[in-house]
Write a protein that binds this DNA or RNA. Sequence first.
RNA 1: GGCCACUUAGCUCAGCUGGUUAGAGCGCUACACUCACAUUGUAGAGGCCGCUGGUUCAAGUCCAGCAGUGGCCACCA
Length: 839
Amino acid sequence: MDKKELPKTYQPKEVEDKIYKTWEESGFFNPDNLKVKKKAKKFVISMPPPNVTGELHIGHALALTIEDIMTRYHRLKGEITLWLPGVDHAAIATQNVVEKKLAKVGLNKENLGREKFLEKINEHIDTTRPIIESQIRKLGSSCDWSREAYTLDENLSQAVKTMFIKMYRDGLIYRGYRIVNWCPNCGSTLADDEVNYKEELGKFYYIKYNLEDAKPIVVATTRPETKIGDTGVAVHPNDKRYQDLIGKTFTVNLGKIKIQVKIFADKQVDPEFGTGAIGVTPAHSLIDWQWAQKYGLEMKKIIDEKGNMTSEAGPYAGLSVKLARERFVEDLKSFGLLEKVDDYEHNISLCYRCSSIIEPLPSRQWFVAVDKEFAIKNKELVKKYGQNKTTLKKIAKWAVEKNEIEIIPPRFKKNYLTWMDNLYDWCISRQVWFGHQIPVWHCQGCQTVAVSETTPATCPACGSRNLVQDTDTLDTWFSSALWTFSTLGWPIADAQNQKSKTCLANESRRVKNQKDEKEKKSDLERFHPTTVMETGYDILFFWVARMIIASYYALGEKPFETVYLHGLIRDIMGQKMSKSRPETSVNPISVVEKYGADALRLSLIIGTTAGADIKILPEKIAGYAKFINKLYNIGRFIQLQEFVSKQNKIEAKTLADRWLLSRFHNLIESVTKKFDSFQFSAAIEELYEFSWHELADWSVEISKIEKNYELLKNCYLNLLKLLHPFIPFVSETIWQSFEEKKMLIIENWPKAEEKLIDKNSEAQFEIIKNLITEIRNYRSQNKIDWKTTLTLKIHSPKQEKLISQQKEIIEKLAKVELQLSKEKLKSAKIKLKEIEMEI
RNA sequence: GGCCACUUAGCUCAGCUGGUUAGAGCGCUACACUCACAUUGUAGAGGCCGCUGGUUCAAGUCCAGCAGUGGCCACCA
């Protein structure tokens, strides 16, 4: 028997890459290669695709670890397990990174042109994507690489087009001219939830509007320069001060420029705030724009897409917003129109990508209508939902309200629902070059808009051949919204299913020897809806909500059964880790290099719960590396023993054996329950406790006395299965060093056997443990070293039998010579329940 | 302004549907290189479970109020 002796300590660096390679080559990451029972359940996770902007951070490591734990657990349980990996093109984010990179060598996208610039982006991705993929592997992620997806893959791009056109035809996508969030720096629109707010101490300007034939009206504002674009003044209908002005239109002289304002009343105005009169700027404020619609005000665009004043701003045209403000305020002052200036704390809106100040601007953009009705085509859904018509917003609310989709932790359910309530039409067009170009063609002859998958030969309206594709691209979240099903082959698989039930999504995914029904079904049919969506709570709205909307709309079914939200990783100061402060962040890959992936995984999981933020400390990681070494050494110890029999005969011969088996089967039951209820931290803590403080501290020590190594080995090997989801590398390494033929990754999850759970033996053994601990304590307190053997007299009529049976264990583990006394002891120095001891 | 969390040992955090002396890791103290492991072993110290009331036979756990911390949403110009 050429048993390879294991080195004294575990060396993750030596084995991890090799082990990963054997897993990957085994094909077991692919559900098609798993041998499963006929009625096996499925378990599917779509990996939240990391952005191809750069390398993975510690947050990705957390997500991948949780996902891998779930995946490995379900695979061990014998389920048809698929974890589908992928990466996201991350449109604007990636474009910004590449732009910054180019700026360093004096290049910009304008002088490169669209095509060249996109080439540069793809070059960038050619370097980042392999790094990301290798990092995912380094963490031990057991995902099915044969199904890896990229949001710009052909099929996924097709999915985007199909979805856009479907929604357009249903009237759910429309083009509109209205106020959008504009980032002058990115040169693009942003969705409402892509705007961040920051508190800032600013000024509150009181500007006097002189009205002919009436008292002047004073308007308060934080943005005086926008008053140049005012076309109205809003007051409260009951405000006595302004009663006689309501409904009238005045020309107001603002020093160097004149404006025309209509005075109107609306209940939304707070008469207590400021002067009770609001200057209304329809072109540069959403609420003002809404008023403009309601009261028929004109819209005057005075700020352009670069953040400069337009020609409408008269003498201020061409100035930046900031400069225009300074000049305008000076002018107002010199004309005596500035009544006063107060300090004022208010929120400014910033771009979530580049932190530039957002300018609300009127612009012609594409929107998704969230409140417009459409027909539900899926009969089952109609039955469940109770109606055959709905809106995107309603169906997405319904799904979560009725627990069609479960959110863990449940408190985020409320968050989700209020967000849905506040949802407005979603602006999906971006003036970004990198991404899915909008499948819309504009006729240069008659300006007709043609929506089509490919370039139309002629304009459907005028027959012109001069058609140009819309230069805008789609919000990156539009393609992410389709992720759970676009990665499984929609819409192609879907279309093929309609035609024939015998198609296969991909020839390369065929299983050689399993030509059964699963070959006839597409991935989409087999794996959608997915089982769990595991992601950070920070993208609940950006992503999770939109996947729910998209899936119900496109497929008439939920995208996933359960949403598991993990927390955000923070540094020691409790701050969000940021790329701008690299010294505060923990690089997952250097941790893997130093301590191994298993130690990193444990430190990310232990002591954390769903939705709670995590502070990561370097000492924590080092601590768990010790546990892994400990576990490894138990295995090493077992391998160094001479076995009486070569078969794994599991036989509980002694009390200690019965205790071990009972504790172990208890553990199986408890850990399984915890896995099933997403309590991963609790599960691994229990496993840790058992491994170290029951198995290693007691069973290993007792095996040196009682020599039942077979039982020890059996429990240990089964324990490795329970530990495998958390620490795949070390468990597989040890497993294979035991010359087991089957890989641990596809072993069977142990089953708890009721008959082996023996509370009586546990209680009895507990007495022995306590007895030994008490004696050791006595030793420690009296500074008696371990070389001295003590004589111990015990008087215990009730436990006498037990103690005499366990005499050898007590004597060896406590280093005593034991004498049982029938009589009461004169000076019992140690007392336990029903036991007196004298030394 | 609305909503949601959090506050437990020096530090980082567990404690699910209320039930015996409140747990873990790290750190700390003392002792021990006992042949799997010094990435070790043995033993130990350390907690008005934020504050104040209430419900209950019983509360870290449920309810109310207060204080502090953090987050999300809205964005009153």
